[in-house]
Design a protein around this nucleic acid. Structure first.
Length: 256
DNA sequence: ATGGTAGAAACTCTA
């Protein structure tokens, strides 16, 4: 089973690239973030024509998540239970015997800002929820834009990024707390090239200069992690014309 | 110490 995640930064703009990528890679599941589309505007027909069943939870202008699957998936949740939040950032589903949670963690804007506080509160609520989910559902995987580079090796310039949003100690602590809730970082289960990142700022030629961060993650539960046989970042779409600022991440799991 | 870019929408906000 192949599970992928991609922050597309507008599905309207990136739809041709998504369809092209699906055709090339044929994942069983693709989780999308920052679709920036109301549900009424979701391109369901084009997704179905490509051989995928879409689930989506969106809003106008900002945020929005979707899950595309070759097998029809059952929608389980589009919000963190008991956490008041207007923003569409989660989509939980059952697909092919695995519970897949597509997640778009708040960016946090700047350390100390209101949005940073919201990010940490959001992560605390999400982690509590995922810990509970894992307790009664061993085959669970979180896939999405977590907006945290967990370790110095996940940022191109650790000294520059130390203490900044996406890599501050409270955020790294929140990432460790999420793993401690029963998950593994699938990317680090395998040897990886140095300087592996999933996001590069549009500005300052960051992609060409290899100035990136690894903030998109596929986090299987400990049980499911035992079946994980690879995790790779596909930088190809980031080099294309009019790219998203994020690259897709793909993890493969052996059948049980 | 500021600005650089992209997307959506609407002359600004978010990332």
């Amino acid at each position: 089973m192949k599970i992928a995640t991609w922050n597309v930064n507008s599905l309207k703009v990136r739809l041709p690239q998504v369809l092209d990528w699906l055709e090339t890679h044929r994942p069983d599941v693709l989780c999308l973030q920052e679709t920036k589309l109301e549900d009424a505007a979701f391109p369901a027909a084009q997704i179905r024509a490509a051989g995928y069943h879409p689930l989506f939870s969106g809003q106008k202008t900002y945020n929005g998540v979707a899950l595309l699957s070759r097998e029809k998936a059952e929608m389980l949740a589009t919000a963190i239970p008991g956490f008041r939040d207007e923003q569409k950032r989660v989509l939980a589903s059952d697909v092919g015997g695995v519970r897949v949670v597509c997640v778009y963690v708040p960016n946090g804007e700047a350390v100390g800002s209101d949005k940073y506080r919201y990010k940490l509160d959001w992560l605390a609520a999400f982690t509590r929820w995922m810990k509970r989910e894992g307790e009664h559902c061993p085959g669970l995987v979180l896939a999405g834009d977590v907006n945290i580079a967990p370790e110095p090796r996940d940022v191109h310039d650790p000294a520059l990024w130390e203490g900044r949003v996406l890599h501050s100690e409270p955020e790294r602590r929140a990432f460790r707390a999420l793993l401690d809730a029963g998950f593994r970082d699938s990317f680090r289960l395998f040897p990886q090239p140095e300087g592996s990142y999933t996001w590069w700022d549009y500005r300052m030629n960051a992609f060409k200069r290899k100035m990136g961060l690894r903030i998109d993650h596929i986090l299987p539960s400990e049980t499911l992690a035992k079946r994980c046989k690879s995790c790779v970042i596909d930088k190809t779409p980031r080099a294309a014309e009019r790219p998203s600022d994020h690259a897709p991440v793909v993890a493969e799991f052996d059948e049980p």
